[in-house]
Design a protein around this nucleic acid. Structure first.
Lengths: 238, 238
DNA sequence: GCCGGATAGACTGTCGACAGTTTTTTCAGA
DNA sequence: TCTGAAAAAACTGTCGACAGTCTATCCGGC
């Protein structure tokens, strides 16, 4: 066993002999998730270099494991790699943010349209419960939980669309989750969410699409306005 | 130097000393491209296992290089990985194809809308030339070249939209390029392409979007009809 | 001082080997 | 002949080492 570290990914009792049916934990995935957290929570700012050996020591794993974890992260756009020079936390300027919103608008519009054909009453009730929870968290001034629940709500819409590619593509704009704390009025967000759900429930795809687009566009406009007036948190802009 | 093989990725003179400014060729990328070709040209059918050591020997590289190349391919959905069991050529059933077309329709619609604002006369002329080339290749019964030029045409539309995320996402449905030989009438395809370009040139985003959607949907319908009647080439269906 | 080439350090790319897991084969017993 | 446990084979995951590349530093000439 190698010397332990407090930040080590592998715990001392990483594998109990009793748990035979459980598959071996693939270290690469743990490292990937740990790196993702470190980037999304702002520990490593966009544009900064991620030195492989540094993380290998920190997580107590071989450098090749870090390499492979970084390759996995590359697909979601969270990091960018330059041959022979290194891997960098994905830069994100205002333009890139807008582009992500444009794509997101198009794909969520598709999602809610598809939802109209397939979503059941139970599923709709579940979505309504989530929408209420988002509103309540907003009322209670718990923005972090509100944001993560909002993300879960939109993910669920994608999932219920039945189109698996939509789900897999959502990671492309997930990257920006931490950057934009749009800070909208919870009551208004709730109304918009419920409007979309009602349109789905009434099987009105055109209306659902229009409302979903409007919902995403509000966030985009807020971000765009901030970008124009230079009110970004500096370290988040490349 | 290791023993050579006819299929080796690294040639004997892989690095001329004169070309100093040229960066070292990253073997991983060459292996990735070679694997991609092998999958897209049908050598390795969907669902089959890709054994790392096999390709390591074949390409005359270390297994870790193959591992990393496969990780790169995973992001485009070309291969799927199961922990501790191996990497498989991505399965694609009819449903997955339809889903890809749905996403593609939404994103190309976005692309042509964005193109209306930014595309210059020269760029439009370039696109028209490509459309003519596609038609000519179709007339000359050169389906492979026609298909690849058609792909280039649609890629160019994405690129000219100015939205970089669209370009990076296009690899998601590129996967299916080889499967679907839709075989449409070249003259009709040409008319549809030109219709889209004219709408862009006239700065009519709504019309451009409608035509682009219709264009994609025709291909989707053909594929869907084939799927319903079971007229897929068997090895391409999982 | 400062400009450009040599040199040293840091880091990435590649490699072969070992460890652990899954799959196949073997073989004793019914 | 069939079943199922045990052994063997095949393969993936992880590791440490070496080789090549990039970057920063040093130093001599101007």
């Amino acid at each position: 066993m190698r010397r332990g570290g407090s930040a080590s990914v592998r715990s001392a009792s990483s594998r109990s002999p009793a748990a035979r049916s459980t598959r071996r934990v693939v270290t690469r995935h743990q490292v990937r998730d740990a790196l993702e957290r470190l980037i999304l929570d702002g520990t490593h700012k966009p544009g900064t270099r991620l030195v492989q050996e540094q993380f290998a020591r920190r997580f107590n794993v071989a450098r090749s494991v870090v390499r492979e974890a970084l390759l996995e992260l590359q697909s979601s756009g969270l990091v960018e790699s330059v041959d022979n020079r290194g891997v960098y936390v994905g830069r994100l300027d205002a333009a890139r943010l807008i582009e992500a919103f444009e794509v997101r608008e198009a794909l969520e519009a598709l999602a809610v349209r598809l939802c109209c054909e397939r979503t059941t009453r139970e599923e709709l009730r579940g979505l309504e419960a989530m929408a209420e929870r988002i509103r309540d968290l907003g009322r209670q001034r718990r923005p972090t939980e509100m944001a993560s629940t909002d993300r879960a709500f939109h993910d669920e819409l994608l999932r219920l669309s039945g189109n698996r590619m939509l789900v897999s593509l959502s990671s492309s704009w997930r990257v920006f989750g931490k950057v934009i704390r749009v800070g909208r009025d919870p009551e208004q967000v709730f109304r918009e969410h419920m409007g979309i759900l009602r349109a789905i429930g009434a099987n009105q795809p055109e209306r659902a699409e229009r409302l979903a687009r409007a919902h995403i566009r509000v966030a985009r406009e807020i971000v765009a306005r901030r970008a124009r007036s230079g009110r970004f948190v500096p370290e988040w802009v490349s």
